[in-house]
Design a binder for these strands. Sequence first.
DNA 1: GCCGATTTGTCCGTATGTATC
DNA 2: CGATACATACGGACAAATCGG
Lengths: 244, 244
Amino acid sequence: MPKSKYDAIYKDLKLKIEAGDFPRGELLPSENSLIPVYGCSRNTLRRAIARLVTDGYVQTIQGKGVRNIFIPVEQTSYTIGDIETFKESSLRNQKNGSTRVLRFVELTADERVAGRTGFPVGSELYYIQRVHSLDGKPLILNHNYFLKSAAPGLTPEIAEQSIYEYLENTLHMTIVNSKRVITVEKITEIDEKYLELNVNDYNCLAVITSHTYNSDGVMFEFTQSRHRPDYFRFQDNALRRGNR
Amino acid sequence: MPKSKYDAIYKDLKLKIEAGDFPRGELLPSENSLIPVYGCSRNTLRRAIARLVTDGYVQTIQGKGVRNIFIPVEQTSYTIGDIETFKESSLRNQKNGSTRVLRFVELTADERVAGRTGFPVGSELYYIQRVHSLDGKPLILNHNYFLKSAAPGLTPEIAEQSIYEYLENTLHMTIVNSKRVITVEKITEIDEKYLELNVNDYNCLAVITSHTYNSDGVMFEFTQSRHRPDYFRFQDNALRRGNR
DNA sequence: GCCGATTTGTCCGTATGTATC
DNA sequence: CGATACATACGGACAAATCGG
């Protein structure tokens, strides 16, 4: 359900582009010709197009038009500049995702935990360790830390389903943004065990470290996601802004 | 030099935030109070703020205000959602970057090259192999393919300086966007040799594969950047758009 | 090279909706 | 409930780039 007019236009254009309704590499109909089609103002249409630009679907050239540069990509990619839960990603890829909870404990942040996560010393936290599998193959080992005061009532049962669903739908929390860092790290014995890896094969893996914020401005989650290197794929569309 | 009014406001607010002029975690002055400060319309101010949101500097909450969520980060990070050249990155980090050209050849894309790069079979290409070092330490091994028709006149001398500077300032090409994929791959003998790695230590590295487009809509560059795993850092700020 | 038509980029003012307090 | 703050939407004006005659 589109939450606004420009969002509806954005989604419609996106679908049409994905469906190949516009020739690849060519220009889309001009803004002025699309305005009557959608019955909107120019600003509204331009807002929809701006989103397509950041998605890497089109590029705009002043004086010429809007070029379709969409290329169908591997659907198996893990994430694309948006916050997406494992469950959402599984559904999008029409795969059979499953989650196993390895550990579920409550703890108080000491110096060591505080330094690692960024939570203040003394914070009451949930620490959850989970393995995400796709079609039965373990792909991701997750270490989650949730601030208990912001995400109260978490249980192992919820962790096995979807924590974000619980936070958003039951607690009505609004998740806003997530600062992520991707690095490559050495494999630990825990990784080796739960991701069924062999040091003699790959001896490192991809790690996504993220600090996630809600609309109260509190960092309520720290997560370290450890990904099997042979299945890890992270996509991005970068724009050149330069100093011009 | 700001290229527009909203860009000037964006840069000014960004600097003020980085300088700590606004209390961290608190709300910025409201839009209405900033409008007279900058002498602009509300739309223009909101456009500047929208950029700060995508940068992860602030978050906006309807009915409340704009919260400063800036956290100073490691400057050593390689890249942040923008296309940045190695030279620009070195300067930003105030490091002493240097580039060594290992190979510089012209070739015609055969089946194998075409499949790997995405250029059509028969394309005339430059193939350039380079090592980027920071403070004398080799960090990145680059395999660049440039479309000769779009980037004519490349030389090893240019490749040792900055190819993008040549493309943008001399050829007046406008670089628009770059589709990137990050993966983790096994080390090859070439990596081992030029990045001074040891298989017994790390046996894989971070790989950024990118397809870059100019304003003519032609993919003129394919590049594979192979990064030392112990120095690789990729930052990102993801926004939760969900389905709400 | 100039001119005019087309197309995107920037900016403004206003009105209305919605969430917070 | 009212005041405040951000979100959406509209319409208009002018600038800047592109392209064809």
